[in-house]
Computed example of a mutant assay.
Amino acid sequence: MIKKVDDSKNKLSLSELIDTTGFVEHVSVDCIIFGFNKNELKVLLLKYHELERWSVPGGFVFKNESLDDAAARTLYERTHLENLFLQQFYTFGDVERTDQNNPHRELLKSRNISVDANHWIYQRFISTAYFALIDFTISHTFPDTFNETCAWFSVDELPKMAFDHDVVIKKGLDFLRKNLDYNIVGSNLLPEKFTMKELQTLYETILDEKFRRNNFQRKILSLNILQRLEKLYTGSANKAPYLYKFLNK
């Protein structure tokens, strides 16, 4: 579990952020936050001030902190989400990635902040990406210097993205799909107690694939990740489905 972040630690204005020598130059972290709502997989995005571009939560790494701590800190500063299980899944280092839809020049210009053309903020960044699966209802907005809006978007209908963050999201989704059996156990995409049908719907939504009920149930039960609980009585007693919970929760 990522540790709780101090709300007042390392808070900087935009000018201080650009001028500081406290960051590891050319290194950043990005956080892909997935949520599930109304049978739709969504991703949490942030909108830049004055610009019609969106990004995943992320930021720079202080010289005195680890990548894990940087990911937890920047996520909290930008969304107020904390104590999430953030899993590192990929490092992005394409030579041209910083030149793609880079909003920094426009953002600084709109604030009348001038920096040297060779400043590190304009140069290539190596970004380590994390992802988390959370309860859709627990997110809160917390705009900071860079961002004014925090909102959920369907992974299939992304807005205009900054940098290469559409690629980052796609890579995160690919990783989730390939490792769903492992990641689903520690996620908060479902309530604590759920039916097999609800779990199947979640799998089908994330994988964009339909399953036969019996085959899906056989596969899931073979993973030994579920505990069967009482029945859910909402109608006919003989049709009441069993409730389940993940064994490690």
Results as ranks from 00 to 15, higher is better:
residue 211 F to C: 01
residue 7 D to W: 15
residue 39 N to L: 05
residue 213 R to C: 00
residue 49 H to D: 11
residue 204 E to F: 00
residue 144 D to Y: 05
residue 190 L to D: 12
residue 216 F to R: 05
residue 7 D to F: 11
residue 107 L to Y: 14
residue 118 N to V: 02
residue 120 W to S: 09
residue 51 L to M: 11
residue 163 F to C: 06
residue 197 K to N: 08
residue 44 L to E: 00
residue 159 P to G: 05
residue 92 F to R: 00
residue 16 E to D: 15
residue 190 L to M: 11
residue 48 Y to P: 05
residue 216 F to N: 12
residue 175 F to L: 03
residue 135 D to W: 09
residue 194 F to A: 11
residue 48 Y to D: 04
residue 99 D to N: 12
residue 155 V to W: 06
residue 22 G to M: 06
residue 41 L to D: 03
residue 234 T to Y: 02
residue 112 N to R: 13
residue 106 E to R: 10
residue 199 L to E: 13
residue 177 R to L: 06
residue 106 E to S: 15
residue 160 K to P: 00
residue 182 Y to N: 08
residue 195 T to R: 08
residue 247 L to Y: 12
residue 10 N to M: 10
residue 127 S to L: 03
residue 171 K to A: 12
residue 80 H to G: 02
residue 147 N to T: 14
residue 70 A to E: 10
residue 44 L to Y: 10
residue 140 H to L: 13
residue 122 Y to E: 05
residue 70 A to S: 14
residue 116 D to L: 08
residue 177 R to G: 08
residue 26 H to N: 15
residue 188 N to Y: 11
residue 63 K to A: 09
residue 39 N to K: 14
residue 104 H to G: 00
residue 172 G to D: 02
residue 81 L to A: 03
residue 146 F to D: 10
residue 132 A to L: 09
residue 77 E to D: 14
residue 48 Y to H: 14
residue 89 F to H: 13
residue 156 D to M: 06
residue 154 S to P: 02
residue 210 K to S: 06
residue 159 P to I: 03
residue 46 L to M: 12
residue 127 S to K: 15
residue 6 D to V: 12
residue 24 V to D: 04
residue 4 K to M: 11
residue 193 K to D: 12
residue 72 A to D: 07
residue 221 L to N: 10
residue 28 S to Y: 00
residue 211 F to G: 07
residue 214 N to T: 13
residue 147 N to A: 01
residue 183 N to G: 01
residue 207 L to C: 12
residue 125 F to K: 14
residue 169 I to P: 02
residue 110 S to V: 06
residue 137 T to G: 00
residue 248 N to D: 13
residue 95 V to H: 07
residue 3 K to A: 10
residue 229 L to R: 01
residue 93 G to R: 09
residue 101 N to I: 07
residue 154 S to K: 10
residue 166 D to F: 01
residue 169 I to G: 02
residue 186 G to K: 08
residue 216 F to I: 08
residue 11 K to F: 06
residue 109 K to F: 08
residue 18 I to W: 05
residue 228 R to L: 05
residue 143 P to C: 09
residue 186 G to L: 07
residue 70 A to F: 08
residue 187 S to P: 04
residue 155 V to L: 00
residue 72 A to Q: 10
residue 237 A to W: 05
residue 235 G to I: 02
residue 1 M to D: 14
residue 175 F to W: 06
residue 68 D to G: 10
residue 229 L to S: 00
residue 119 H to K: 06
residue 6 D to L: 08
residue 212 R to N: 14
residue 227 Q to D: 14
residue 33 I to W: 03
residue 231 K to C: 09
residue 87 Q to N: 08
residue 234 T to C: 07
residue 123 Q to E: 14
residue 66 S to A: 12
residue 234 T to S: 13
residue 139 S to F: 15
residue 239 K to E: 15
residue 38 K to V: 03
residue 109 K to E: 13
residue 90 Y to T: 00
residue 52 E to V: 00
residue 61 V to I: 14
residue 234 T to K: 11
residue 127 S to G: 08
residue 151 A to Q: 09
